[in-house]
Amino acid sequence: TEHYTFHTEEQAQRAAKKFKKQGLPVTIHEKNGKFTLQVN
């Protein structure tokens, strides 16, 4: 499991699309105004 932190939801969504294209499951969590992208 890898985690990436982004300052905006837009950045997180863009990164999520790249991972999803590779067939990886992705979840985004919002915490304290930051967005954490979790790749399993």
Rank of each mutant, 00 (worst) to 15 (best):
H7D: 15
K21D: 15
A15G: 03
A16Q: 04
I28H: 01
G23C: 05
A16G: 04
E9P: 06
K34Y: 11
A16V: 05
A15Q: 05
A16C: 12
Q38D: 07
A12Q: 00
K20T: 10
R14I: 12
N32P: 01
V26D: 00
F35W: 15
N32T: 02
Q22E: 07
N40F: 13
Y4Q: 05
T8S: 08
K18Y: 14
T27P: 00
Q13G: 03
K20N: 08
R14W: 07
Q11L: 08
A15T: 04
Q13P: 00
K18V: 10
T8E: 04
F6V: 01
L37K: 00
V39A: 04
G23L: 03
E9R: 15
V39Y: 05
Y4S: 04
R14P: 00
G23K: 03
T27I: 09
Q22Y: 10
T36Q: 10
K21S: 12
K17L: 14
G33N: 04
N32E: 08
A16L: 08
E30W: 07
Q13D: 05
T5A: 06
K34W: 09
L37V: 13
K31S: 12
E10Y: 08
F35V: 03
K20D: 05
T1W: 13
N40L: 13
F6D: 00
T27C: 08
H3R: 12
V26N: 02
L24E: 02
K18F: 14
T27L: 08
N32G: 07
Q38A: 08
G33F: 02
T1P: 11
T8Q: 03
N40I: 13
F19P: 01
L24G: 02
V26S: 04
V39K: 01
F6E: 00
G23S: 03
Q38E: 14
H3E: 13
T5V: 13
P25N: 15
K20I: 14
T36N: 06
K21W: 07
T8I: 03
A15F: 09
N40V: 12
E10G: 06
E9G: 04
R14F: 07
F19R: 02
A16S: 05
H29N: 08
K21F: 07
N32M: 05
F35D: 01
T36F: 14
Q11W: 04
G23H: 04
Q38S: 12
I28S: 01
H7Y: 11
Q38P: 00
Y4P: 04
A15L: 06
K18A: 11
G33P: 01
I28M: 05
Y4I: 07
K34S: 08
Q22S: 06
L37N: 01
L24N: 04
T1A: 10
E30M: 09
P25Y: 15
K18S: 07
A12G: 00
E9S: 08
A12T: 02
N40T: 12
K31F: 13
L37M: 05
Y4F: 10
A16E: 04
E30D: 05
Q22N: 07
K34E: 09
H7A: 14
I28E: 01
Y4N: 05
E10Q: 09
T8L: 04
K17F: 07
Y4E: 04
L24W: 10
H29G: 06
R14S: 09
K17N: 12
F19K: 02
T27D: 05
E9D: 05
N32L: 05
N40R: 07
L24C: 05
T8M: 03
N40Q: 11
T27Q: 08
Q22C: 06
V26Y: 08
Q11C: 06
K21G: 08
N40W: 13
G33I: 00
Q13S: 06
E9H: 11
T27M: 08
T1D: 09
L37T: 02
A15W: 09
H7K: 10
T1V: 12
K17G: 06
P25A: 15
L24I: 14
G33Q: 03
V26T: 07
T36K: 06
H29T: 14
T1N: 10
F35Q: 01
P25G: 13
N32Y: 05
T27R: 06
P25Q: 15
H29D: 06
K18M: 10
V26H: 03
Q38F: 13
K21T: 09
A16H: 03
K20S: 08
T36P: 02
R14D: 10
H7W: 09
F19H: 03
E9F: 15
K31N: 12
P25W: 15
E30T: 06
Y4H: 06
K17W: 11
T5L: 09
A16R: 03
A12H: 00
N40M: 11
H7L: 12
T1I: 13
A15V: 08
K18G: 07
T1E: 09
H3M: 13
F19G: 00
E10V: 08
E10L: 09
Q11Y: 04
V39M: 06
K21C: 09
G23N: 05
K18P: 05
E2L: 15
F6I: 00
E2N: 12
G33V: 00
A15P: 00
F19L: 10
V39G: 02
Y4D: 04
P25H: 15
V26M: 03
G23V: 01
I28L: 06
A15D: 01
E10D: 08
N40A: 11
T8G: 03
H29V: 14
T8H: 04
Y4R: 06
F19A: 04
T8P: 00
K21M: 13
Q38Y: 14
L24Q: 05
E10A: 12
T5D: 06
F6S: 01
E30F: 13
N40E: 11
G33S: 02
